[in-house]
Simulated scan of single mutants.
Amino acid sequence: MNIETAQNIELPGGFAANPVIIKGEGAPVVYLHGPFGQEWDGFLDDLAVHRRVYAPAHAGAEQTEDLDHLDGIPDLILYYDDLFDRLGLGRVDLVGHSFGGMVAAEYASTFRDRVGKLVLIDAMGLWRDDAPVEDHLLVSPQKLVKLLFHDPSKPEVAAKLAMPTERDAMNAAMVNRFGALASTSHFIHPIPERGLKRRLRRIKAETLVLWGAEDALVPPSYAAEFAELIPNARVEMIQKAGHLPQVEQRKVVSGHLERFLAG
């Protein structure tokens, strides 16, 4: 990861410290990652040019025992509110991808005045029987790549999928991924629907919904549903991109974020 610093933030309630990645200067923006682990993608470098970016690990990713104290979404949202307090953050802009998008939406619907602007990138959290969200846990690695990416042959995708070649680093990466999947699946498996649809109406933040037009994991039809349920939201579809448009179309996604957050 190309990072400026990672701070282990102590939390109340007996939770493990959260290794928050921090980079940049300016108004704060928090990035909540998807189900495959804490990350620092190139588009976050783009965002950190003008903003101070905070990228925490998800609750339970460092110590899976933490999940014993997180029974559901309300506990998870309070965990993040405590984390933001410990980081000294007041009102923030919030960006969430995939599972992190679901958490960001839940947080914005609960702490309505604490989120200035909200960006949801291919967010989980809704469910339609006519367009089910695919399973990302119990599929082969080959199938997972097809679910996540529109064009796996792109160099950007190959770089994203590459594992460290040094044995200890590879083992650490595999452990980190296992912890992340365990922590996020605790809240979304087998169906990522926990009543968010009923709460989206409460969001006060101006919201941008970004979606890979070829997302095979969370169908693109959910973009319009999020925008319809959130009072002040609009959609931008990212062409030639799957579930990670910030990887396959980094410049396009970064441009949308820069304009939206600066407005």
Rank of each mutant, 00 (worst) to 15 (best):
D41L: 06
D41P: 12
G42L: 03
G42N: 02
G42I: 02
F43T: 03
F43E: 03
D45A: 07
D45V: 07
D46K: 11
D46A: 14
D46C: 12
D46E: 14
L47N: 11
A48K: 08
A48V: 12
A48P: 09
V49P: 00
H50N: 14
R52C: 10
R52F: 09
R52W: 09
R52Y: 11
R52K: 15
R52S: 13
V53R: 12
V53A: 10
V53I: 09
Y54N: 08
Y54K: 07
Y54Q: 07
A55K: 08
A55Y: 13
P56T: 03
P56E: 00
A57K: 01
H58C: 05
H58I: 03
H58L: 05
H58S: 06
A59L: 02
G60C: 02
G60S: 03
A61Y: 05
A61I: 04
A61V: 06
T64Y: 07
E65G: 07
E65L: 13
E65Y: 09
D66A: 07
L67N: 06
L67I: 10
L67D: 07
D68M: 11
D68S: 13
H69V: 08
H69K: 15
H69A: 14
L70Y: 01
L70M: 03
D71P: 03
D71H: 02
G72V: 08
G72M: 12
I73S: 01
I73R: 04
D75A: 05
I77P: 04
I77F: 05
I77T: 04
L78F: 06
Y79N: 05
Y79E: 06
Y79D: 05
Y80P: 01
D82S: 13
D82I: 08
D85E: 13
R86M: 15
R86Y: 13
R86A: 15
L87H: 04
G88M: 10
G88A: 10
L89M: 02
L89D: 05
G90A: 11
G90L: 07
V92H: 07
V92F: 08
D93Y: 06
L94V: 04
V95K: 01
V95R: 00
S98A: 15
S98F: 12
S98E: 13
F99A: 06
F99W: 14
